[in-house]
């Protein structure tokens, strides 16, 4: 069973990456890995181009390799991709007016949640203290009444 699982894992992995590129320096190769994991495949939308074997991902990997070897900076490469495929190709989109909601919504929701929680907690504490003496007496009387249907 274990060996079968191992075999499956291996076969899935070998299917994911097709070609390998030679890099002149290990630094370029490291940047290639990072960028190919950050760039999103426009065809198969929930994969990055490192994992996807769609033809378009092969093309983009080839371009990525060419541009890295030609000395392009990360920003230049990302700009090149965004100019063609839109902000969509980045798994970490740049912060601008279009993506502001995307970046800020989690923070806003978190603050709203904390604020809501504080309000509820304060409401509870106030509620417990706000029983008047008459109410307390009523409550005690109720609690002491024997249950009729017992």
């Amino acid at each position: 069973m274990l060996s079968l699982c191992a075999l499956l894992l291996v076969s899935v992995h070998s299917g994911a990456v097709i070609e390998t590129y030679e890099f002149s320096t290990p630094a370029l190769e490291a940047r290639y890995q990072l960028l190919s994991e950050e760039l999103r495949c426009p065809k198969c939308q929930n994969q990055n181009i490192a994992d996807s074997n769609a033809p378009i991902s092969q093309d983009l990997r080839r371009l990525l390799h060419q541009q890295l070897e030609a000395g392009a900076s990360d920003e230049e490469i990302l700009e090149f991709m965004v100019a063609r495929y839109g902000e969509f190709v980045r798994y970490r989109p740049a912060f601008n007016t279009v993506t502001a909601v995307l970046w800020l919504a989690p923070l806003i929701l978190l603050f709203a949640g904390v604020a809501g929680l504080l309000l509820i907690l304060r409401g509870r504490r106030d509620g417990a203290a706000s029983l008047t003496e008459a109410d307390q007496a009523k409550l005690a009387a109720l609690l002491q009444t024997p249950e009729k249907d017992a």
């Binding site: 426009p42 065809k43 378009i56 093309d59 371009l63 063609r84």
Partner: peptide
């Protein structure tokens, strides 16, 4: 080679 395709943002 799909070079014009990439410049056009073609993905299929």
């Amino acid at each position: 080679e799909g070079t014009l395709g990439v410049d056009l943002g073609v993905y299929g």
